[in-house]
């Protein structure tokens, strides 16, 4: 897969950072505004996909990238599961117990464990979509050889 022209590359460089920041904002403010971990993670993956589409597949060293994103994905799922399991140990014995204090609705630090879940599921969704996309790109490289 070849990259595109210089104009497209520069615009992609400018825009993908902004898209990344917007995705992180959506994921971390999931308990206050519309959005949440799923949408934020998809936006973050979209920023990476934009960079790869504009710069061509030589932009990343593909094999290692796919292994890395797969590892990040597994780690994020494991962290979310761990957070849920701590609920068993803390206070009443309920899986997915919201054990942190709820705080005042409307503040950034509120909602107990919900923001943490949102962050981890955002990382997981971003890594999963990246893994799927990179697997397709690597396949395309291998059959064109």
């Amino acid at each position: 897969m070849k990259g595109m022209s210089l104009i497209v590359k520069k615009m992609a460089q400018l825009m993908s950072g902004l898209i990344f920041v917007y995705g992180a904002y959506i994921a971390t403010h999931g308990h206050l505004t519309p959005g949440g971990g799923f949408a934020g993670g998809a936006l973050i993956a979209g920023a990476f996909i934009l960079m790869i589409l504009a710069n061509g597949s030589g932009y990343v060293r593909l094999k290692r990238q796919e292994e890395g994103s797969s590892a990040v994905e597994s780690a994020a799922v494991l962290m979310a599961l761990l957070l849920a399991t701590i609920g068993l140990a803390a206070g009443t014995m309920v899986f997915f117990n919201n054990y942190l204090p709820p705080g005042i609705p409307g503040r950034l630090i509120s909602g107990g464990v919900i923001p943490l879940y949102n962050v981890f599921i955002g990382i997981e969704v971003a890594a999963a979509l990246m893994t799927i996309f990179l697997a397709l790109v690597i396949y395309k490289e291998e059959i064109s050889k």
């Binding site: 519309p34 949440g36 997915f96 709820p102 409307g106 107990g112 919900i114």
Partner: peptide, 25 residues
Amino acid sequence: EQTGSANLVAGVLWDFRGYDTLGEA
């Protein structure tokens, strides 16, 4: 007041119905 989350969808997703969301993940 129970979950502390202003977005009620996030509250349902991660507090009342956490099992479901974990399954989807």
